[in-house]
């Protein structure tokens, strides 16, 4: 991934703010800490690095509904809440919209599976 305005940087490098932009040498641990400190704060925190279920928390953050299916309000800024639960292969997001009070489930599919009734 290339950072905007920084052509030629190797993927995975720490974004360069300050001294590191002027050199191709690897960053020292202290320089790395300084560069990270220059980043704007991440508004969405995750469980501590190395947490066993950290990847599930990351997927929740990425996949949860961002907007109300009824009124399109931003669920985050509108005071809504989404609780994710799993049913079989499905990931279900039980969602309440703080703007219009819609309360329902948003279900993420990888494949539409239909259990046929006996016939």
């Amino acid at each position: 991934m290339r950072m905007h305005g920084q052509p030629g940087k190797a993927p995975g490098r720490v974004p360069d703010f300050g001294k590191a932009a002027m050199t191709d040498a690897p960053l020292t641990p202290d320089e790395r800490k300084a560069d990270l400190a220059a980043l704007p704060p991440d508004p969405y925190r995750l469980p501590p690095v190395g947490s066993w279920f950290g990847p599930d928390a990351e997927r929740h953050l990425i996949d949860r509904p961002k907007f109300c299916p009824m009124c399109a309000a931003d669920l985050e800024t509108g005071g809504g809440i989404t609780t994710e639960y799993w049913a079989g292969d499905l990931r279900v997001f039980m969602t309440w919209c703080g703007a219009c009070s819609w309360f329902g489930e948003v279900v993420r599919f990888d494949m539409v599976t239909i259990e046929e009734e006996e016939h």
Partner: peptide, 14 residues
């Protein structure tokens, strides 16, 4: 952030 709820936890979500 590290729980795994199921359908039986619907009351908790409510």
């Amino acid at each position: 952030s590290q729980e795994h709820l199921g359908r039986s936890d619907g009351g908790v979500a409510m």
